[in-house]
Amino acid sequence: MFRDITLGQYYPEQSIIHRLDPRVKLLGTLVYIITLFIGKSFFVYIPAAVFLVMIIALSRVPVSYVMRGVKPIIPLIIISAAFNIILTPGNDIVSFGIIHITSEGIYMAIFMAVRLFFLITGSSILTLTTTPTALTDGLEKGLRFLIIFKVPVHEIAMMMSIALRFIPILIEETDKIRKAQMARGADFESGNIMKRAKAMIPLLVPLFVSAFRRASDLAMAMEARCYHGSQGRTRMKPLVYKRLDFIAYGIIGAYLATVIIMRACGL
């Protein structure tokens, strides 16, 4: 169950999207998310869908692999859809007591579900096509200006990339602990929600202990390899904009403009 999580995983491939500067991809993702929230009707999803399909095709990441990242979010989508159906006021279609299902509610539910779906797929493309280190470099360089506000940009970026690196390791570990506890009679599958939540404790405690141990090991290994913050650090893969990146910026700009114009036209 845990091994299906592809959130924050890198998919190695040689594609145009993989080669793009991480700053371009970060900005692109940000623009993409913003456009999803600009639109008021389903029409906004047309350019978004075109944009997304184009990117996935260019990235050469198999669609099934991208969808695996969406799977764990499905319960969230269902819950939000349920709330939308129940809580949106409007013309009743069916009503049981205090629960009113309205046509506006159903519309909103579908609208939001599609939005969430686009949101997750779009942002997972970012991590699927960018190595954590490139992502860190991109964030670090793109957010360099925050240093004036004394934001430790390098440190935050480093922490993020290490967190991403350790996701699969900790997932594997969770699986191992789970099996070990099950072998000793722990029951994770039955009972109501409270009971199941309680059953998670013998899973989480060893996981946390081991995560701390790993953190301290890693800190020592990093120190042993002369890590001392961003000071005097050089780059193996320095970020330099190439022609491809400017073209990508152009496409992102054009996409944003399309959505804004659509919104201005009242769609």
Binding site: Y10, P12, T131, P132, T133, S161, I162, L164, R165, L218, A221, M222, R225, C226, Y227, H228, R233, T234, R235, M236, K237
Partner: peptide
């Protein structure tokens, strides 16, 4: 530290 072998090996020299 890194999720790619060559970046991993480059980490020390970068530092």
């Amino acid at each position: 530290v890194s999720s790619v072998v060559d970046e991993e090996v480059g980490f020390g020299p970068e530092n």
